[in-house]
Design a protein around this nucleic acid. Structure first.
Lengths: 221, 221
DNA sequence: GAATAAAACGAACGGTCGTGCTATTCAGCG
DNA sequence: CGCTGAATAGCACGACCGTTCGTTTTATTC
């Protein structure tokens, strides 16, 4: 959950940290949001490192310098793109499953939503692939704030998955299970976006079902 | 492989066009190989798209243009880096397991070698992460020859994994199983390189063992 | 309305990128 | 040795990068 500093009391926040623009937000805040949305779309199509000032400014119909003035640096922009995408991920994938009161049933719901998110990026990750997953591999060896943001997001996601596993299968090795589930989503993304496998979802779900039925157990087998 | 007769100092070519270095290759061929090795190391550290002429030339102690003359374009260079890394992958991960005559036992050997390759990139993928895996996510939405090369490699790897699965567990859904195994390696890479989890291997192996013991079955459970 | 602050612009910078050209050096041959 | 072609260097180009700065336009407030 990312808590942002309030500026002049313009932006409102929900209890889980998401930002909602006040109807009378200042012009700066409004265009800032527009920039972030377009930047997220760009990141989705060509990766986070493709979020560059020039093309982004052209898409927005504004000048490079006018755009740049909203952020202290390009890296800060990229970090905020990740944060915004993360908010949308929570909104599209995690929030809906809270309606299921039986916590044991939440893991499959979460996974299905995640696959939807990966397959249909219009849910919030843009026209291309999920920028966060892309950022993991783009920045895993590139030190800097973007890498830290990506690592932090990944760590939080793991913790969340482990919690879901604990409710679904308390007897399972939650760490191993989280690794397998995270891996399935990564592999799913590649089969959908890279090799264009029409049966990707069938195979992914088959593996997931088997995993849930016979998970890795605690204390080694 | 059909080996043509050759003039001394010239490169050998297989019938599919790939290049094999003769022991007394010409100077051009030798530096070309040196370039590819250094480029692979660079790709490993910062991603395939970070294979740029300037820094690469400096590492090699030669001029940008002298380097460039060996390839028709930067993209051609990047494709060849992928091809070379792929050769090393076969050499380090796939070739050794052929010594195991019981084909049913080859899958676990393959997977262990793969994890070694990911964890210990000095095996051939450079100082950083495996360039091929990185390229998957870097280029999954960027059309061009690099993307095609990556997709092709991924497809071949999947076919190979499916074959290993067939020998190890003929009753398993090979497609689902391959997806799970590929995913485990991707997730492993992230935990090792991004979030620096010291117990990554333990969790990955725990999931793999469970998967092998209770794989997704054909025709849906 | 005027006054003031915020936002956006345009031009320019130093830098790096990929890629051509031409000249030079060098390896391998008779 | 000298010859010849391959290998490499030097240089320049246009494009794009992130960033800065001074100016101008637009919002907001009185």
């Amino acid at each position: 959950m990312i808590v942002k500093a309030l500026k002049k009391g313009q932006a409102l926040h929900t209890d889980d940290g998401r930002e909602i623009l006040a109807p009378d937000a200042s012009k700066g805040e409004r265009t800032r949001t527009r920039i972030l949305d377009e930047a997220a779309a760009l990141a989705s199509e060509n990766g986070v490192s493709a979020v560059t000032l020039g093309p982004l400014a052209e898409r927005l119909g504004m000048s490079k310098s006018g755009l740049f003035a909203h952020f202290k640096s390009k890296e800060a922009l990229q970090v905020e793109v990740l944060a915004r995408t993360s908010e949308r991920f929570v909104e599209a994938v995690i929030a809906p499953i809270r309606q299921e009161k039986d916590r044991a049933k939440r893991l499959p719901l979460f996974f299905a939503n995640w696959l939807d998110w990966i397959e249909h990026p219009s849910l919030g990750s843009g026209r291309g692939g999920c920028p966060i997953l892309a950022a993991y591999f783009e920045f895993d060896d590139v030190p800097g704030p973007v890498r830290e943001a990506a690592a932090n997001h990944n760590g939080q996601l793991y913790a969340y998955i482990r919690r879901l596993v604990h409710f679904a299968r308390p007897d399972a090795d939650a760490d191993a299970m989280a690794a397998a589930i995270d891996g399935l989503s990564l592999s799913h993304l590649l089969r959908v976006r890279l090799i264009n496998d029409r049966d990707a979802r069938k195979h992914t779900m088959s593996a997931f079902d088997a995993l849930l039925k016979n998970p890795p157990l605690q204390r080694g087998a």
